[in-house]
Structure formats: C-alpha cells, structure tokens
Computed example of a mutant assay.
Amino acid sequence: MQAQTMVFERKQHVALISQDLPQMQPDQIRAHALCSLISTGTEGICFNRMFNEDSHWATWVRYPFRPGYSWVGRVTEVGSDVKDIAVGDRVAARRGHASEHILSDSEVVKIPDEVASDQAAWFALAKIAAMGAKVAEYHLGDDALIIGAGPIGQMSLRWAYAAGCRNVIVVDPISKRLGAAIDGGATSVIDQPVAGIESAVRGILGGELPDIVMDTTGHPAVFSEALRLTRDFGRMVLIGDTGHPEQQCLTSDLLRKGLHIVGAHDVHNTPQWNTSTISKLFFSLIKQGRFNMQNLNWHVFKPAECSKVYQMISERRADTMGILFDWSDQ
C-alpha cells in the first residue's frame, strides 16, 4: 500500500510523491490523515535553507527531507497487541505531511471528541511552546512579555495566560496577528517592532519591566532587545530557534541586571513533560475553555497545492498564521 507524502527534494522545491508504507506490526496502527498543520517558521527555514551549514539545522535537513510534525488522522486498522486505540479513533502524531502513516501505538495521542481536528493539529506547536512555559517558571501574578505573535507566540501567550500571569503583553509589528493574541488571553498588545518599545511596556506595567520575557521569533536581532526589556533579576526565555545563532549578541544587561537566560527546545523531554503528557493537557484545556483556539487557522489547502503554499510562506509569511493541509479526500 502506498501513501502520498510531501518531500523537499532540494532547496526551495517541494513535491508530493507516492511512497510504500511499511508492513504493519502487532503493536502498530494504520491511520488516514485528516489534516496536518504547517510549522511556518521551522518549515520556512528548512524550505529556503536559511541556516548556517555548520549548524544543527544542516544536520537535520538532508534531502529528500520530509517536512511537517503536526499530523492528525483517523485510525483505520489496529494491530493485535494494541489495546487502548480502536478503529475510528482520531489520533495526533509527530509525523510529516502525508496521506497515511503506520504508527506505533506509543507515539500517538488520542483526540477527545470535544476537540475539533483543525484545533487538535496545533498540538505539536503547543508542545514546543510548553517547553518555554516550563522553563519560564511562571508564578501567579507574574508579568510576561511575549515577543512575536506567530504560531509559537500564540501558543506561548496562551500558556502564560493559563499559568495565571497577571499581565501578558504581546508585541508584533504585524497588527493582524494581534487580534488572535487578544482572543488567546493577551492583556495588552503592541503593534510595532520590538526595538524601542521599552516606554510602552513600562507604561503598561506602571513603570516596571516584566518578570519574564520570551523570544519566540527566531530572529537573531531580537535577542539583545529581549535582554533590554527584562527586569532586574528577571528571566529571559529563548524559544525561537534561529538558523544564525552567531548573530545573537549578549549585552551588558546580562551582568548589569543579573538576568537568567534559559533556552527551551522541542527535544527537552522528560518522563513527566513530553509530547504525550503535554498534548493531553493541551486537549484538556481546550475542552475546559481555558485555551481559546478560535480564529487561528487562516488558510486551508489541498496537498497538491504544496508548491503554492511554501512559496506563500517564503514570500508572504506575514499574511499567514495557521496553515492546514486537508487530506480528507486523498
């Protein structure tokens, strides 16, 4: 049996190809795709090869490269050893854009009936943002500044809101993103570039700077601005993964203000905090109405339109938020 699979065959070239599926084992399931969400930041960097060739990105992006890691499907077959998953269940998996996958039962998370598939598809980006929330060590009443209102920024501000932050300020020069930020729990938004916003931030916080600043952008120039905007002895969390880390510069703010800088990454899993545990929490918060996922998916495309999609990400990323591939009729 074959599946339709998306691949980057070389820089700035994507194709939809047919690929043989492996033989299903007793502890595996077969699932047909419903939708998959593009990680516009990560996949844009990979598609355009916007990274140093001696970076971890170059080690990862080898051709043919299979993009995507936010996949939702419906189970069509289960192996004899699978106990907790049934045919007809919807599942989320960290797999690439494809019409079908053979999956270990341990790598999927069941999606509750109350959670729509197009919202569940955000589970992987919510998980990445949750790694930032974990190391941010939010306390009730903290003031947080989230730099960037793209997909990771949207999930990051929602974790800060769910964690009980008093003020969740979001800054992004792309004003159309900020409506979704307010829907998600942002208490204040600033629609301008991060450089030069200190007075605006202090105005919101009664003359103070935030306890936690989170850089979700992946733009190296933001790093030094984030340090400038963090209060004395505060915490600056770096979650945006740039392809050019040599352009991120420390400033005197680190020593002068006694700052804590901590990095957060998708691979920082523990037995207690990983894709499975975070996804289940994410789905629970959606069910409870504590994670507003409305108005985040701005575009839906058929897989055959993949060339147009990645061109749009490359040329007009500011016009995008959630981009879904709809696999339902493949």
Score class of each variant (00 low, 15 high):
9 E>M: 08
9 E>T: 13
10 R>L: 09
12 Q>M: 14
12 Q>D: 14
17 I>P: 01
21 L>H: 10
23 Q>D: 15
31 A>F: 03
33 A>P: 02
34 L>E: 11
39 S>A: 07
46 C>T: 07
51 F>G: 13
51 F>Q: 13
55 S>G: 08
55 S>K: 08
56 H>M: 09
61 V>M: 15
61 V>N: 14
62 R>N: 14
66 R>A: 09
68 G>N: 07
68 G>P: 05
74 R>G: 03
79 G>W: 05
80 S>Q: 12
80 S>W: 07
81 D>E: 13
92 A>C: 15
93 A>Q: 02
96 G>F: 09
100 E>D: 04
109 V>M: 12
111 I>Y: 07
114 E>P: 05
121 A>C: 15
130 A>Y: 04
130 A>P: 01
136 A>R: 01
139 H>F: 13
140 L>I: 15
143 D>H: 13
144 A>E: 09
144 A>N: 04
147 I>S: 02
152 I>W: 03
152 I>Q: 04
156 S>I: 00
157 L>H: 05
159 W>T: 00
169 I>K: 04
170 V>Q: 03
173 P>F: 11
179 G>A: 07
180 A>G: 03
181 A>M: 07
182 I>E: 11
184 G>E: 04
190 I>F: 09
192 Q>T: 11
193 P>D: 14
193 P>H: 13
194 V>G: 02
194 V>M: 08
197 I>T: 08
203 G>W: 08
209 L>Y: 14
210 P>Q: 12
212 I>D: 01
220 P>V: 02
221 A>M: 08
228 R>L: 11
229 L>S: 06
229 L>H: 08
229 L>D: 10
235 R>C: 05
237 V>A: 01
240 G>C: 06
245 P>N: 08
251 T>K: 12
254 L>D: 10
255 L>R: 10
256 R>G: 08
257 K>P: 01
259 L>H: 09
262 V>Y: 06
264 A>D: 00
275 T>M: 05
277 T>G: 05
278 I>V: 14
279 S>W: 06
282 F>I: 06
287 K>C: 13
297 N>V: 14
301 F>E: 03
301 F>Q: 02
303 P>I: 00
305 E>T: 01
310 Y>A: 01
312 M>A: 09
314 S>H: 14
315 E>S: 15
321 M>L: 11
321 M>D: 06
325 F>W: 03
326 D>V: 04
330 Q>G: 07
330 Q>I: 12
330 Q>C: 12
